[in-house]
Design a protein around this nucleic acid. Structure first.
Lengths: 202, 202, 202, 202
DNA sequence: AATGAATGAGCGTTCATTCAT
DNA sequence: CATGAATGAACGCTCATTCAT
């Protein structure tokens, strides 16, 4: 008699490098969070999609929340580097060009990632509204403003304050476009460039 | 007579007008949501604070979520009317003054209510980011911009777009101030007036 | 100013004869029980459909279960009288014809009312399987058998026992036909007549 | 050391083969369902009697209803096999003996299990009255009839129809005996044999 | 007799986390 | 490292019944 194959293949215990496991879990979590939201996603869902046992999840993350934090860090780092590289193409001295580059980089990056953004910043209340991640992002823009200021390209009374206004102005405009189903960056960037430069060059 | 060892006083049944009951429930819910968040507040918590039985809650609301919606509607209506009355003091023709009034009204109202704001707009994702409430709020500002435009006070390429930028710029700046613990509106308003008017009058 | 009509017409308190109220409630309950089952029907459902306030229900019935009992009684009385009148057409002395009449009357009545039957005998367990209603129904058939026996038309060792066998045999066959979607009585009656007469005339 | 006033012993976690856990839960459920009925039995009752945590119940069953289905399947399988083995003792060719064996097997099995029967077939309405389980049971009897028919032992116009009549006749007679408190199979079997054979041999 | 607001005990289900293997 | 059975606190919601009006 041939061996009767078990109904449940009793998945072989598979030893994999930590990094792969973490990536699989974080990736599965990201997809599911985007699909159905954080609360509606269970740890079971995550491990099922990642093809891993439940205990394995807790081997790599202390809590479900920790995955959200990991995702948040990845999101911020990615955002920062994408915008930075968008600005790198610009000559150091051309401040207007750098601001334009910031706008285009920020809009493009946000448009490309807004779903994950929604997920990872979902539970931001005022207690957490000033975070390291956000400070880094604002600093990036504030630097542009300050450099231009120092070089006499424009006058800003308060670089951080203005950075906040610009950042959230941009954010809100893109949000609205997303909600309206307009996913093209051009008209948004044009309007933002126009208004922001008017603000600075007045 | 049999002993009656400290049984609960069997609170008398109170028949009250619907509006009072709803207010008590909504009020209790608002307080608790602000204190501990929506998820951490149970329906039991709400009815205990409101001093009614659990069934009474479900007599007036189909689900816990429905209270959040009610709160959202109340928040928006309140915001709208407060800002409107802040602007009413201004002469019709003075568009700059009206924009200033909008800024001061909006900042003051938001500062006064940000905790509830956090609660009721907590779960706004892009699917809901363009809502009737928000449209009403944006329209209010867009009207100011359009009136000024028509009167030749300034040039705005796209009233709704600019309204979005201003609204979110304001929002972000106040958020940051709240997070930093600065609750005074003055410096915020000054900066916003300065930047917004530069943007419009360029 | 004309009086503003209230949004809720505040249904006028209507005094009606008890019998009409009871009929309305029992009728509404029967419909709903058939539609969705007893458990899935709430007292609220019943009063809504009956167009009556909740308290009125408890004015006429002590409990929800009591309506089921009322319905049960009505069902049984109706069944009994329908079958009886089906047999009345037969000459007293023709026992075979009377049995045939019983079969046709019982099948037709059950086919016409099986939905309500399902509802009112839903929770019959062995504790309740011998009830007054059922006894009355079995007696009706047992009398036919006994009369025939006395007249020498057939031999039955135990009239009540045989009545039970015939009654449930009929019941089961009709149930199966209903489940199969065949709602015509003829083939069922033919088979039952054939088998039952064979049983008795052997 | 701090005092540890009678805290619960914190039952050790026991890892057991799935089958044992399922059996424990199904068994506890069956007992309780029989004792107090399905609705009056809570999932808490079941897990307490089975000695497991509530979550364990839902690890093995998606809903409370699922246990009822499991019980139904077990009941039907048990019934079928008991009756089958009661008939196995009979010589293939003796059709009357096989029918007698069916009667005795069916009566005995039903008498032995009627309480569980009441539980698992409690909510059978016409929508479910023709089920796979029942078909299997009817087929078993219909085969006996058909075999006898083919061998010329008797004439049945419609094997399935007659099987239904016999099965429900038997069922009803046993139900009545149970309700009357007579638990001995003999008189029931005697009557059934007499009547059924008269029906077939006519 | 009639109304409908108010009550509150009760229950099924969820799911993050633990831990024996 | 990896597995997945086991845990149990927690909660939203239902609904028959009561009773002030």
């Amino acid at each position: 008699m041939s061996e009767r194959p078990l109904e449940k293949p009793k998945k072989q215990r598979q030893v994999l490098p930590a990094e792969m496991r973490v990536d699989a879990l974080v990736g599965a979590a990201a997809d599911l969070f985007i699909e159905r939201g954080i609360d509606a996603t269970t740890v079971d869902d995550i491990v099922n999609r990642a093809g891993v046992a439940k205990g394995t999840f807790y081997h790599y993350f202390a809590t479900k929340t920790e995955v959200v934090h990991t995702l948040r860090d990845r999101f911020s780092a990615d955002y920062l580097s994408r915008v930075a590289s968008a600005m790198e193409a610009c000559p150091e001295g051309d401040h207007t060009a750098r601001l334009r580059a910031w706008i285009r980089g920020a809009v493009a990056t946000y448009l490309a990632n807004f779903q994950l953004h929604d997920v990872v910043f979902h539970d931001f209340t005022h207690e957490r509204r000033r975070s390291e991640e956000k400070d880094a992002i604002l600093d990036q823009l504030a630097s542009v403003l300050q450099d231009g200021q120092r070089a006499g390209a424009w006058q800003v009374p308060d670089a951080r304050g203005v950075a906040i206004i610009l950042f959230h102005g941009m954010h809100g405009l893109v949000d609205d476009a997303i909600a309206a189903g307009q996913r093209g960056p051009e008209p948004l960037c044009d309007l933002l460039e126009d208004m922001f430069l008017r603000m600075l060059n007045a």
